[in-house]
Write a protein that binds this DNA or RNA. Structure first.
Lengths: 264, 264
DNA sequence: CGGTTGTTTGAATCCGTTCAATACCTGTGG
DNA sequence: CCACAGGTATTGAACGGATTCAAACAACCG
């Protein structure tokens, strides 16, 4: 699996070297057979409340439906895009989940975020005109493709949409600030607790259970995200288990005492 | 000095408790005596190339001059805004420098960034409608006040300006991603090296010397930013000194061997 | 079913922190 | 102008949390 050995220096074995080989080319998307996957409609999407501003009129929603005309399925372990790819579109996760990761020159990887249904991907690519990180599917997933130039045009006309994009980007900045604080000031125990509570909250907002859920990522990926080794992640899970805070059976998580977890 | 004891649990002594007391209220800015400070003009500003998109016509610049009609001086140690303040404007640093810091509920502070002339402050406040962090002047400074609602209106009309703001926000997201990687994967030595090289680059872009400059922040603030203790920062400076990589005399820094520093 | 990948746990090690002592600036007031 | 104070910086020694190395186990998949 190409996404393995996260956080460790990657040996670019011959079959991995030609990066584009295993990646569906994003520029061919509108015409490719993989691209059209049903006909997506913002107006009827279950993630609309998470993904779009609430103040849109029916006619404005119809306008969006014409812009977001393609979705794209991504298989588990495949990349949606890679750092360095030409930036053209942002993506909304319609189903499934992703991780985004930046790579250090020494080959070590750092996971910058996990995205689940309703989240946005690729906003960090606007500045340089090319993608800033790798986006990799944690399970079989589907994204909506939103061509950024078209989105900009829409935003010049639809004030709520304009504001919504500013808010999305701003909240990504704020989220990363919190994550920087986590990485800069918290103990391993606090980091994992914060991570689990954050996931819980996001699942809840999306209508899933906040107390019991399934992790799509490995211990290693969690560690990469939280700035610690996979063994430490595992130890902390065991610790939470002993203290009856979290029941973790492999990737199935049940939060037993959210209050105590938050007070760590 | 109110900005002291960064990163340590702050004792909210009585004179600090009424937060607004020492802060110039931002809502009174347009009318206050402190606000008008000469008449700022983007068209003649030395930071324009850093601060504004390059493609603007003369008439478009004139338009901006009417929007950014106030500047505000901030004394060293004073706050430009605090977390929780109502968000109305973003700010461009015209002269001087700032730090932004988020606070954990246990009172520990984490520095999320240092901003020098040409940098933007406050973009993370859009999402919640209130400021997400504290912004504190590291020296006597001046900012341009940019009312965000007006900026949004301008962006709906001026395509280059619209794209510029998206780029600014996007690059802040990308910057924070790098910082997360730094905090998550690098040793103390690598962190400080990266920090110094980054500062050097930014000074250079702005026309200052990239090899010799003056730090405006304390060792403690650097430590808070890089996720380490001030003693460790000091030790790393000493180490670099011994290895003839950086000559640090208090806050005066001379980078002796940028290549080796980058290879750490 | 075997092989691969992912997880758990233990023991030894190490990097950065903590605690402490000292020295160095920088601005203020006598 | 100098002395003094408070914040800032440096350095050493002991400590501790997280990593590293290692081994065994569980889960998954072709």
């Amino acid at each position: 699996m190409q996404a393995s050995a996260a956080c460790e220096p990657r040996n670019l074995t011959p079959d991995q070297a030609p990066r584009t080989a295993t990646v569906t080319p994003i520029r061919a998307v509108s015409a490719s057979s993989a691209a059209r996957h049903g006909t997506p409609h913002c107006s009827t999407c279950s993630m609309r409340s998470v993904c779009m501003p609430p103040e849109l009129s029916a006619s404005e929603l119809a306008r969006l439906d014409t812009m977001i005309c393609t979705t794209r399925p991504i298989k588990r372990g495949d990349t949606l895009y890679r750092a360095g790819d030409t930036f053209q579109s942002i993506y909304a996760v319609r189903a499934g989940s992703f991780k985004t990761a930046v790579m250090h020159r020494d080959g070590r990887e750092h996971v910058t975020g996990f995205q689940i249904a309703g989240d946005t991907l690729g906003l960090d690519g606007v500045c340089a005109g090319k993608q800033n990180c790798d986006a990799i599917a944690l399970e079989d997933s589907v994204v909506c493709i939103i061509p950024f130039a078209q989105l900009e045009a829409v935003c010049r006309e639809m004030k709520p949409m304009q504001h919504h994009i500013y808010r999305k980007m701003s909240s990504e900045i704020a989220r990363e600030s919190s994550q920087m604080m986590l990485l800069g000031t918290m103990s391993a125990e606090q980091r994992l607790a914060t991570f689990l509570l954050n996931l819980s909250k996001r699942f809840k907002v999306r209508g899933f259970s906040g107390s019991e859920f399934h992790l799509r990522m490995t211990r290693e990926e969690i560690g990469c995200y939280l700035g610690m080794k996979l063994e430490t992640v595992s130890r902390m899970f065991s610790k939470f288990h002993r203290e009856h805070l979290v029941h973790a059976n492999g990737k199935t998580i049940r939060i037993e005492d959210a209050e105590k977890l938050a007070r760590i």
